[in-house]
Design a protein around this nucleic acid. Structure first.
Length: 252
DNA sequence: AAATAGGCCAACCGCCGCGTA
DNA sequence: TTACGCGGCGGTTGGCCTATT
């Protein structure tokens, strides 16, 4: 270690530290475009960046990734954060998987800023946070109302799509114990795991809610990624189970 | 208007688990 | 079997900005 270094200067090993420049960002984006994510320690050599692999990965994951969602955490996302934190504690990366476009770092920062108990004047701090949240919620409430109609239509279509996918998988060679147990129109609770039951409930729109969220919210915040969903069926055995668990756990 | 406090967020650090040679 | 490198994760730090006093 080079000890306590100032920002934007070289370490003993020659690595740059501190804030990223636009040119460094450009190089990193170009590197990922050509080589894909991963092999971060090759970035310095292949992209001409004087950054170590960890720094590059962090910059990409937390800032440059194209699928990142910018802007404030919505009240809807906040409820999910609170719910999942109550369930899993400080497992930020796990929580982040349930919030597409949000990074673990972002969620961690948000939670610490808004909900971490402070020893000094807790009532004041809590009151301020509450008021701030209230203002924010009022703002988002307007947006939500506008989106609501559109989402209702989308949910209907989405639900139909999901059932079609299940039906399609049933016809494929990927017939699994889960897909057999779930049988969208012929469900056997006795043979299904808790996760399977939960997933089935979601498909049919009667899941028990971990908080006062509508089915609609669950569909759009929970079943976020059809690629992952399909992956949980097509991957082999244990991976399949693990993926299913990750997919469904937040809602069971 | 200046000082201070607090919020926010990017980035670093150290540890750990996994894959591989 | 083991040592090593890499990537991922959670905790922490520090700087900038805004609100409050």
């Amino acid at each position: 270690m080079a000890g306590h270094m100032g920002w934007g200067i070289l370490e003993e090993e020659g690595w740059r530290k501190g804030p990223w420049t636009t040119e460094e960002d450009r190089l990193l984006i170009e590197y990922v475009r050509v080589h894909g994510e991963g092999r971060w320690n090759s970035v310095a050599r292949l992209a001409g960046l004087k950054r170590n692999g960890k720094s590059c990965r962090l910059r990409w994951v937390n800032y440059l990734r194209p699928d990142l969602k910018r802007g404030q955490i919505t009240p809807q996302e906040e409820r999910i954060i609170l719910e999942l934190h109550a369930r899993w504690g400080n497992r930020w990366s796990t929580i982040a998987r349930s919030l597409p476009g949000r990074t673990d770092n972002e969620i961690k920062n948000y939670w610490r800023t808004h909900f971490k108990k402070k020893p000094k004047n807790p009532p004041d701090a809590a009151e301020k946070a509450k008021n701030r949240l209230l203002r924010r919620q009022q703002f988002h409430q307007l947006q939500q109302q506008q989106l609501q109609k559109q989402q209702q239509q989308q949910q209907l279509q989405f639900s139909l799509d999901m059932k079609s996918i299940i039906a399609l998988l049933e016809d494929n060679e990927h017939k699994t114990p889960f897909s057999q147990a779930i049988q969208v129109n012929n469900f056997y609770p006795n043979t299904a795991t808790e996760e399977q039951s939960c997933f089935y409930s979601m498909l049919n729109g009667n899941a028990s809610m971990p908080y006062e969220a509508s089915n609609e919210e669950i569909f759009w915040d929970g079943l976020w990624n059809l690629d992952d969903f399909h992956g949980s069926f097509s991957a082999a055995g244990a991976t399949k189970q693990a993926n299913l668990h990750n997919l469904v756990a937040p809602f069971c």
